[in-house]
């Protein structure tokens, strides 16, 4: 009525906490929609395998980064090739 209420105003950090939990738990409960953490090692092995059919690279040449989001998640895969690509 006078622009303030007796209910304590909800602190901003609590909202952040709730949002973070909702996003994380949605991923954990669903098994992350096909991107379960447990499938990533296999994904990595298979990517390496495919690339090795064409270029010789080491086990450490692959770097997978993930960012889980509310609506969508992104998987960033960086593969380092040796100095020159063996392309004809």
């Amino acid at each position: 009525m006078f622009g303030f209420s007796l209910r304590p105003r909800k602190a901003a950090s609590a909202n952040t906490a709730k949002e973070r939990l909702q996003i994380l738990l949605a991923h954990e409960r669903s098994g992350s929609g096909g991107a379960r953490p447990d499938c990533l090692p296999q994904l990595q092995r298979e990517i390496l395998e495919v690339i090795r059919r064409h270029v010789q690279i080491g086990d450490e040449a692959i770097d997978i980064r993930m960012e889980r989001g509310d609506e969508l998640s992104s998987l960033e895969i960086n593969i380092e090739f040796p100095g020159k690509l063996g392309v004809n």
Binding site: L24, P37, L40, P41, E60, R68
Partner: peptide, 18 residues
Amino acid sequence: CERRVVFDFINVIQGDAK
């Protein structure tokens, strides 16, 4: 950094990730 976890300590111990 909870949204950025890809591999973990156990993956490293078991040789699934560097």
